[in-house]
């Protein structure tokens, strides 16, 4: 009896876990979707202020971070190929590169935010409160959305780190790539969201 029980809870269905991951991605899309609705409504109401406030953001850092995320998306995709081809070492290297790139993204974000905060631009700051309503909303959205995105980066890093360990100890392997694939899907989602965040915040001219 006990053995039966173990058998059916340990039953592993890669298609089910992939479907589950996709469904989870849908909820993430709708989670950010709510914020994009807020963004579009407020930008519609304050087009000029949004335009001017966006000038404060550094396009170069935004561009660099975009490219970093795109490359990291590729390395994760490649790591799946590598594992499918049975190249465990290359898988681990590519995952490590992905994690490093994610870290660089966060460091850039840190300096970017730091510069804003240094200039007294952060939610609730006296300086920001003295600006127009459109400015307040723009920077409120900027910090909230990029902040939430950064949290997703961190979650993704944890996920990929777990996958890295499991690849190393062999529980994720050529015959069982599911977890790596799902980790990859999550990482691409993070990239996907940034693809929209970048033009919406940095490229309003």
């Amino acid at each position: 009896m006990e053995q039966n029980h173990v058998a059916h809870t340990d039953h592993f269905d890669p298609v089910a876990s992939k479907l589950g991951m996709w469904l989870f991605i849908f909820t993430e899309i709708l989670l950010f979707g709510g914020l994009f609705i807020v963004y579009s409504v407020y930008r519609f109401k304050h087009p000029v202020e949004f335009h001017l406030a966006a000038e404060e953001l550094n396009v170069t850092i935004g561009l660099i971070n975009t490219i970093i995320l795109l490359i990291s998306s590729m390395t994760v995709a490649m790591s799946i190929t590598a594992l499918q081809l049975g190249n465990k070492k290359l898988t681990m290297i590519l995952l490590a590169v992905t994690l490093v790139l994610a870290l660089v993204f966060l460091v850039n974000k840190y300096f970017e935010w730091g510069a804003k905060i240094h200039h007294d631009i952060y939610p609730g700051s006296e300086f920001l409160m003295s600006l127009s309503k459109g400015d307040m909303l723009f920077f409120g959205l900027y910090f909230f959305m990029t902040g939430l995105h950064a949290i997703h980066i961190i979650v993704g890093m944890v996920l990929l780190a777990v996958v890295f360990v499991k690849v190393r100890n062999g529980s994720v392997n050529q015959g069982r790539v599911s977890l790596l694939e799902n980790g990859g899907l999550y990482w691409h989602l993070v990239d996907l969201i940034w693809i929209f965040l970048f033009p919406l915040f940095y490229l309003i001219h």
Binding site: V76, A77, E181, G184, H188, L192, I195, F196, F198, P199
Partner: peptide, 15 residues
């Protein structure tokens, strides 16, 4: 352009 990029990511990277 962002939508095109997103579609590429969905189709190829996300398989």
């Amino acid at each position: 352009i962002a939508s095109v990029k997103a579609t590429i990511v969905l189709l190829y990277f996300m398989h």
